[in-house]
Design a protein around this nucleic acid. Sequence first.
DNA 1: CTAAAACCTGACATTGATGTCAGAGGCAAA
DNA 2: TTTGCCTCTGACATCAATGTCAGGTTTTAG
Lengths: 134, 134
Amino acid sequence: MRIGDLAAKTGVSVRSLRYYEQQGLLAAERSASGQRHYPEGAVGRVRLIQQLYAAGLSSKTIAELIPCVVDGRATPELLTRLAAQRDHIDRQIADLTDTRDRLDSVITGAGTTMLTGRSCRAEDVPHTAVQAPG
Amino acid sequence: MRIGDLAAKTGVSVRSLRYYEQQGLLAAERSASGQRHYPEGAVGRVRLIQQLYAAGLSSKTIAELIPCVVDGRATPELLTRLAAQRDHIDRQIADLTDTRDRLDSVITGAGTTMLTGRSCRAEDVPHTAVQAPG
DNA sequence: CTAAAACCTGACATTGATGTCAGAGGCAAA
DNA sequence: TTTGCCTCTGACATCAATGTCAGGTTTTAG
């Protein structure tokens, strides 16, 4: 598979795939002329990378942990780091849940506000047709 | 309260507090000589800002939503945006939960691996909609 | 009064992932 | 062979939040 195909399959830009290689996250075979060639498994690998990016891990951290995650090669030290990342994600989940609930209560609370017809700085909303009176 | 005190109470740098003001997230009274002066409530406000930053909202988005969150005021349009943010956070939570579980199974699997010598291939662990290899 | 500490504005630097552009070469179809 | 698309490297641009430095004013402590 060439880089354009992998990009199409994963939804990740060609630019980013090259960047992942540069960061040591994603190896590629090279053809005689230097073009990158990926096995099928690269698709899952890229998805994993994206997932870890989404969890807020840096390239450097992913590069350190990825052999452990894909190969199960875990030194006790790596295992500790992995657990630390898991705990960090746990904290993120807790924080996000808190934020979600907070927004939620604002939303349901605002339902009452909507009935009373009060507006929220309508003059600052440059969008289409705000008909709420100021 | 002066800016240094607020920074100390919130753990946010003085630089960032000035930046928040510039972004319209955090207003400050000014003394005759121009120094910023904050009420006690600013502490909670800064914490809210941090919370929303942590949820991945941009300054611009926070600036738009914050009057509603703190005052409970919302136009229907703003309410929609708020709900969209909540849904976005919900998706983040789901993704993070998935990632956490994945790391978790690597961790417990790796523990087993260390005992049994079996390898643990996380890319083969089923999570949400992994495309099966052909 | 004086010196230190805190504050002000403004500007430039940094980090990280990604976009974009330029110039050169590879590869398959016509 | 020509055409057109894909790929290569390398470099510069971007965005957003924050760090840092400079030069000047204010506040506070001795």
